[in-house]
């Protein structure tokens, strides 16, 4: 095989980052894995022998298993909502190509990403609190007599998590929709197709890679998120990320926290892989 010279192998370039990642990312992950394989004594200290008891706990105790199931359900719900809300915005962005309106839309979509998740969550706390804007509106217009305890409800958690993750869905959707050749729309119209048909037969199928990308970004983030549910809904909710956090900070039981978090990770990766495979299968079927 002819070698192409003047082309570096590249190893030297990636080496610093690889060393960094091994030391700061992979090694801690491996240690979490090993941590999850130890039982604890009464005081919560890890014992030297190996066992799968922590994983048994994760699957048998409803406190944990229910949290995993709930996280799974919530993530699906949030992903679906992000797609439903994000697609129209991305579509609008792909149609408005220039001007103040486009800049304004971009600023509104991107500015949440610029702000810390704790700030965004706090914003919802303020919005949904007893004398926050929403309750003021409900009481003021007479829909309810008393302010509703919107915080600590599941709905509030879903809404706030959707809000936090929505920009992550909009960006790949916008990229995909923006990448569709604008002439295709005109071609479709010149062949007699109306707006709806053009959308369902041309735009939507071609935007599918963007939909896939959005799902594969939002879903893992939703599975692992804990700051927002904690601030908006309280620490006792049955969500996996939250349970891991409370096991670490209140119960100090690191091994079970490790087992739960690794189970969460594996579950997330399996789901993402399944999504990826599903989308590829769909694409291949339609490529004919």
């Amino acid at each position: 095989m002819a070698a192409v010279r003047g082309r570096l192998s590249g190893v030297g370039f990636v080496l610093p980052a690889v060393v960094f990642l091994v030391l700061v990312f992979l090694v801690p992950l491996v240690r979490v894995l090993s941590l999850s394989l130890h039982p604890v004594d009464g005081a919560g200290n890890p014992l030297p022998e190996f066992s799968l008891v922590q994983y048994q706990r994760v699957f048998s105790e409803t406190f944990f298993s229910q949290a995993l199931v709930r996280s799974f359900q919530t993530s699906f719900l949030v992903t679906a909502l992000c797609l439903a809300l994000g697609y129209p915005v991305a579509y609008a962005l792909s149609r408005v190509r220039t001007g103040v309106l486009r800049t304004l839309m971009f600023v509104i979509v991107l500015s949440p990403l610029l702000t810390s998740v704790v700030v965004r969550s706090y914003g919802w706390v303020v919005l949904l609190s007893a004398n926050g804007a929403v309750n003021r509106l409900l009481v003021g217009t007479g829909i309810t007599d008393q302010p509703l305890p919107l915080l600590t409800s599941y709905t509030a958690v879903v809404i706030s998590v959707t809000h936090v993750l929505l920009p992550f869905a909009i960006i790949p959707l916008t990229t995909a929709l923006g990448g569709i050749d604008p002439h295709l729309r005109r071609a479709s119209q010149s062949l007699g197709a109306g707006a709806v048909r053009t959308f369902t037969r041309v735009t939507l199928p071609l935007s599918l890679p963007g939909v896939a990308a959005a799902c594969m970004v939002v879903f893992p983030l939703a599975m692992g998120i804990y700051i927002t549910p904690l601030l908006v809904g309280g620490a006792n909710q049955p969500l996996a990320g939250l349970r891991v956090y409370s096991q670490i900070t209140s119960v100090y039981d690191y091994p079970v926290a490790a087992a739960l978090s690794l189970t969460l990770l594996v579950l997330t990766l399996v789901c993402v892989a399944a999504m990826g495979a599903g989308f590829r299968f769909w694409e291949r079927r339609h490529d004919g």
């Binding site: 095989m1 002819a2 070698a3 192409v4 010279r5 003047g6």
Partner: peptide, 11 residues
């Protein structure tokens, strides 16, 4: 030409 320039190492 690329072989003359040195970008391709011949077999």
């Amino acid at each position: 030409l690329h072989a003359l320039a040195g970008f391709v190492e011949p077999d």
